[in-house]
Design a binder for these strands. Structure first.
Lengths: 249, 249
DNA sequence: CGCAGCCTTGACCATTATCAACGCTGGTGG
DNA sequence: CCACCAGCGTTGATAATGGTCAAGGCTGCG
């Protein structure tokens, strides 16, 4: 709520990554912009530092801002009136927040960990889009990927068992790590079990039980509560339903 | 598979809707195009007539075509290796097929009923996009709406009960009818119970049972197997979790 | 060191899936 | 024109997956 905004900390000197502090240029939609485009983008963006639990966006509020996450992690979720929660995505550096937005936010977003984001006024951003067709194309591309990811998640939520859901989740995180240049064996889990549960359409207890079962089977090894290593990647993706879909040994 | 393609039946004389037969201009992304844009669009599109059960797109195939549905209805779905199916959407006239597409289709699409579509080669379409920034903006807008719809469906699949799912589904169809200018009281269900089930993450039996319960409660009235009328719209949206989320009388 | 919050595990339960039988409906061929 | 058949839909009985409730353990911070 009371975010520390460093207005125009995003000023850029032409060579640097956008946003000054922003280390995610190569990951983000900014990557399509030439230097002068970056400079113009910087002129209309704030750099926002957020702390754990801070609310970036609240469902139902007028959609004034868009964000490009540059550090930390964020959960995006929807609520039912009685409090049931569905997390529709976790965001990491380079991810864009606000694509699926009309006049009002249709989701809430909260910081999972401390971090930072480039924040744009939607209005100015729109103008920017019109001037930078490349940027628009990049966003369309990104929206298309997000839509694909959403479809996959619908398959997971609608048709997969608890084990398959958790295995898919871990396999996804591993793939993400690999895409970011990591080995994809050790996974960081910045979120709690409850958040994993709300992402996978399960309860905390089930997430915990299934995790234990995977551990017992030797598929994963817990390094700490918030990091684990994948001991049997092949078995994991089998359990995830990527291969045979029947992973019972 | 053996679609009847009327190549260049989409030729347009400047005043007419695109695609000649296409009656969905005002619904579709075409609506942003001026007449000369339409003419150019027509030049790169086929008009495809499809019959019930015909496959428009197969998951895993190279993504060569994009479609603008002009008549009939289509189911878009994903499969698990063992045959479990998740329908990620039903398409109706004016809907666009292929936004969530990379090099290969990540979904399959089959005709639910007979109908027709404007079919574009992705390659030429890309070029068209570059020439028509308005079209790109319209697609981004549409992608954004689809993403929102996908998030809603994730909430439904992950957190709603069977009754809430069916009520949400019916309320959505009613809203769609209202948006299309209808009264939103009588709903057409071109799909089978099995397809509704695969869309809502349930089984045929559960869909049938829940439908019966809604009928007994007097919330809906079955006019035939494939059309019903909503007798108590307020109660329906309450059951859908749009209001109090607890609709037990 | 103690407390609070998170995680794990266990016992039991509920919702929904599965299995099975039957009814309806629409199309086809005698 | 009627009867049959196939496919879809409905309903019932039973079972299983995952949820709920509850207790206890771990961990990290004050």
């Amino acid at each position: 709520m009371t975010a520390k905004i460093e207005a125009l900390a995003c000023a850029v000197d032409g060579r640097l990554d956008p946003c000054g502090l922003c280390t995610a240029r190569h990951l983000s939609v900014c990557s399509v912009l030439a230097d002068d485009g970056l400079r113009r983008l910087s002129a209309i963006s704030d750099h926002q530092i957020f702390t754990t639990g801070e609310i970036l966006v609240r469902e139902g509020d007028p959609a004034t801002n868009l964000f490009n996450i540059t550090a930390g992690s964020v959960r995006v979720y929807k609520l039912l009136p009685d409090g049931r929660r569905q997390i529709v995505g976790f965001l990491f550096p380079g991810d864009f927040l606000g694509l699926a937005t009309g006049d009002r936010y249709a989701f809430s977003a909260e910081a999972l960990t401390g971090g930072s984001a480039c924040r744009f006024l939607k209005k100015t951003y729109r103008r920017m889009l019109a001037e930078q067709p490349d940027l628009e194309a990049a966003l369309l591309d990104r929206a298309s990927h997000e839509l694909q990811a959403a479809h996959n998640q619908m398959l997971l939520l609608g048709r997969k068992t608890a084990v398959e859901r958790l295995a898919s989740f871990l396999a996804d995180l591993a793939a993400r790590d690999r895409r970011a240049g990591g080995p994809g064996r050790v996974i960081q889990l910045p979120m709690t079990r409850a958040e994993i549960a709300d992402y996978l359409g399960l309860t905390t207890e089930t997430v915990s039980r299934v995790t234990s079962r995977l551990k017992t089977r030797g598929v994963i090894r817990l390094l700490s509560l918030h990091s684990l290593s994948i001991e049997k990647p092949a078995e994991l993706s089998e359990l995830a339903g990527l291969d045979a879909g029947d992973g019972d040994a």
